[in-house]
Amino acid sequence: MEVYLDNNATTMVDPEVFKEMEPFFCHIYGNPNSLHKFGAGTHPKMVEALNYLYDGINAADEDDIIVTANATESNNTVLKGIWIDKILNGNKNHIITSEVEHPAITATCKFLESQGVSVTYLPVNEEGVLDAAQVKDYIREDTALVSIMWANNETGKIFPIKEIGQICKEAGIPFHTDATQAIGKVPVDVQECNVNYLSLSAHKFHGPKGVGALYVQKGYTLTPLLHGGEQMGGHRAGTVDVASMIGMGFAMKLATSKIALAYENNHVRKLRDKLENAILEIPETLVIGGKENRTPNTTLISIRGVEGESMLWDLNQKTIGASTGSACASEDLEANPVMNAFGSDSELAHTGVRFSLSRFNTEEEIDYAIEAIKNAIHRLRAISSSYAYTPKDHVSEL
């Protein structure tokens, strides 16, 4: 049996999404900016896809949604656009973010720091919670942007976006959120939460890879990251990947429906909890950040005495896919920075394993994974030179 539990890294394309995309590879393939019927033939479905994106995050009709290559491009567009508009060409020089953002935010902030920008990285507590009041405390006269993720990619922890949005609105500071890990897992409403910029990536909610979007509220302009043609109203040059845009829109429709969100919150949560509770039956295991206030599909578990990479190797032998954290940093064997930010000791910072489910996982798969995980823990602890191992009376063989 093959069991994929790394859905925060990427998801399978929903077969219904693939059906929507298929005609735009070999049949309706015109450049949408061309004047002939081959180009115009793409327009109805492109408009429909944009409408699905607007509906999925409750954007207003007058707001902009820019199709990008991924959330990384969207994040860079916001941070570097703010840098150009409000820092290089204005009187602002300060950005607020958190210590546990995705590398697409933190690496860009490090670049901006190399250019003289002042960046405040707000800490989280041992439960992975960011206190919204910290944002208010650190806002300065020269603050140009606040950028805080909606949900953490490793722990699933949900941040107080509505409270932060209100603080930023009252202070007159633009607010950006990377909602990549929130779409399709929890309700996302840019109007209710006073969000000015929002990034997302289709492959996180069963859409295709290589396409994302950036929401820009009316009145909040940005210098484009890419210059060239007049695509996306001049906000993002380059011919749009029509098939992927249509796939992203349809995936958004499926993922953000009331039925889909209820399924995530009930069925997927139930499977996640079953997996998690079975692992926690083993001594010296714990959920990083605790169980409260998380997306329903994610758990980051620390297993004392077991290196995360070793656990992944064992699970891979049983055709189970998991992760030690962000896929964008999976080749980095340094201690997990998110776990460090939570205050984990140096040993535990290397022991985190993330399991992230989707609506396509089954209870049979979870049962298989539980057995494999338990056996792997016992095997790896037994050969550890630093862990005092007490063998169980019986360990099942798969």
Rank of each mutant, 00 (worst) to 15 (best):
T77A: 10
A69T: 07
A69W: 07
N70M: 03
T42C: 15
W83R: 03
D55E: 13
N91D: 11
I66R: 02
A71M: 08
P44C: 13
E62S: 13
L50V: 14
G81T: 01
N93K: 08
A49Y: 15
N89L: 08
I84A: 15
K86Q: 10
V47H: 12
N70A: 10
V67W: 11
N70I: 00
I57K: 07
L53K: 04
K80P: 00
A71T: 05
G56D: 04
V47T: 14
H43G: 10
I87Y: 09
V67G: 01
I95Y: 04
K92L: 07
D61W: 07
A59M: 09
I87H: 04
I84K: 10
K80S: 05
K86F: 10
G90S: 06
E62M: 08
N93L: 01
N91R: 10
N70C: 07
D55T: 12
Y52G: 00
D64H: 14
N75C: 13
T72I: 09
V47K: 12
S74R: 01
H43Y: 09
E48D: 14
A60V: 14
H94A: 01
K92V: 02
N75V: 11
G41H: 07
L50H: 15
T77N: 05
K86T: 02
N93P: 07
K80L: 15
D64E: 14
N93G: 08
L53D: 03
L53T: 08
S74K: 05
H94I: 02
I95S: 01
W83F: 12
T42P: 04
M46H: 11
A49I: 15
A49M: 14
A60P: 02
N76R: 12
H94D: 02
A49L: 15
H43D: 13
T72P: 00
V78C: 01
I65S: 04
I57Q: 00
P44F: 11
G90R: 08
M46K: 13
P44R: 09
L53E: 00
V67F: 14
N89R: 08
A71L: 03
T68G: 02
L53F: 10
I65V: 14
E73S: 06
I57G: 00
M46R: 15
D85K: 06
V67C: 09
I95N: 03
H94G: 04
E48V: 05
I66M: 06
K45V: 08
G90H: 05
I66D: 01
N70E: 06
I57E: 01
E62R: 15
N91H: 10
A49D: 13
L88F: 05
Y52Q: 01
A59N: 05
Y54F: 14
E62G: 05
G90E: 06
A49E: 11
G56N: 00
L50W: 14
H94K: 03
G81C: 05
T77Q: 13
V67L: 14
N89F: 07
N93M: 02
D61N: 12
L53Q: 09
D64M: 09
E73V: 11
V78R: 03
I65R: 05
D61V: 13
A69I: 03
N91G: 05
G41V: 13
A59F: 07
